[in-house]
Amino acid sequence: MQSVQHMVRTGRRGPMHEFSMAFADLRASLDRIGLAWSLAKHDIVSRYRGSILGPFWITLSMGLMVAGIGFLYANLFKVPVNEFIPYVALGIVVWGMIANVIIEGCGTFVQAAGILSQSSLPMFTFVWRTVMRNVINLMHHLVIIVGVLVYYDHWRQTDVLMGLLGLLLLLLNISWISLAAGIASARFRDIPQIVGSVVQFAMFMTPVFWLPGGRLLDHAVLLLNPFYHLLEVVRAPLLGNPVDVRTYIFMVILAVVGWAGAFTTFALTRRRIVHYL
C-alpha cells in the first residue's frame, strides 16, 4: 500500500513541462500496468458474458474464413493448398489484430470518458487496455495458427523467436497508431468512420489473402505499404521464410517517427482530451 501520495496539477508552463507531464503519465501507466490488464480482461469477460464460446466465436468465424478463402483461392491461383492455407491463416489472424487495435483505438478515450472525468488515472492506461484486449483475443486465435501449422506439417520451419520479435515490433507500431486514433477521435467525431474506411481499403491493398508475385514483388504498392511490413514481420518467420531486412528497417523507423509524432500530439493535447469527451 502506498503511503501518502502527492499530486500536483498546474497551469501550462511551456512545452517542456507538457512533455514531462506526458512522460509522468506514461510512467504511471507502466507502474500500474496490472490495472490496464484487469480492465482489458474485464472487457473480454463482459463482452461475451452469457455466451458459450466467448471470444472463440471470433476464432470460429476466422477459421471459417481461412478454410473458405484458403481452398477457393488456392484453386483460383493454382497454388498448393498445404502452402496457401497456413499463409492465409496467419494473414487473417494477424490482420485481425492490426485492424482491431487501430479501429478500437478510436474508442480508447471516448469510452473512458466517465473514468477520466473524475480520477487522476493515467491516460495511457486506456491505450494499453485497448492493445491488451486484442492481445487476449490473439491468444484465442492462436488455436487456428497452431492447428493449421501442425496439420499441414509446417511447424518444423517455424521460427518462433523471430516471430515473437516481429510481434513486438508490430505491437510497438500499432499502439502509437491506436493512440493517435484515440486522440483524433475524441476531438473529431468523423475520425472513426475515416479510420474504418482506411483500414478496410488497406486490407485489400495488402497481401492478407493473396500472394504477391511477379512484377508486384518489388513494387511500391508493397514496399511503401506499412501494413505489408506490419504483417510480414510476424507472418514470414512463422512460415519459416526469411524477413527482408528492409522490413525491419521500415518497422524501426516507423516506430520511432510514429511514436515521436503521436507522443508529441499527446503531450500537447493531454490536458484538453478530457474536455473533448
Binding site: 502527492h6 499530486m7 501550462r12 474536455h275
Partner: peptide, 14 residues
C-alpha cells in the same frame, strides 16, 4: 481529483 487540469494556478494534494 486530478481529472481536470488547471488553466492557471496550482493544485497540490498530499
Amino acid at each position: 481529483a486530478g481529472a481536470y487540469e488547471p488553466d492557471e494556478g496550482t493544485i497540490d494534494v498530499h
